[in-house]
Amino acid sequence: MTDSLAIALLLAGAGFFLAGTLGLLRFPDVYTRLHALTKADNLGLGLIVLGLMLRAESGAAAGKLLVIWLLVLTASAAASQLVASWARARRIRPWQG
């Protein structure tokens, strides 16, 4: 039961990583690509972390996985704001249809 839930979470996580990469390749400008990376990849990592937490050897190990995800999330949010500010300061215009 736990195993099948873990497998489902891991597969879903991988699916979001695929979506993130697809968005990175297909979306028309840097801002929309940022949307894809910050949301899809972080969710993908979150689901994979959840799946691995179900199989973790101890509570502390599970907690550590969660802390890693939260740190990556924070770091990624900061990075996406830096890239967006950088692009805006260079007057890179958003794509509009």
């Binding site: 840097v30 990376l37 990592l45 990556v72």
Partner: peptide, 26 residues
């Protein structure tokens, strides 16, 4: 085409490589 697009690599790499390493750890 812009340098900002190239910077996205660092973000992509950070998240994806973290996931790969966590899977390998297990």
């Amino acid at each position: 085409p812009t340098a900002a697009d190239r910077m996205l690599a660092a973000q992509l790499f950070g998240t994806t490589a973290a996931a790969i390493l966590l899977l390998l750890a297990e």
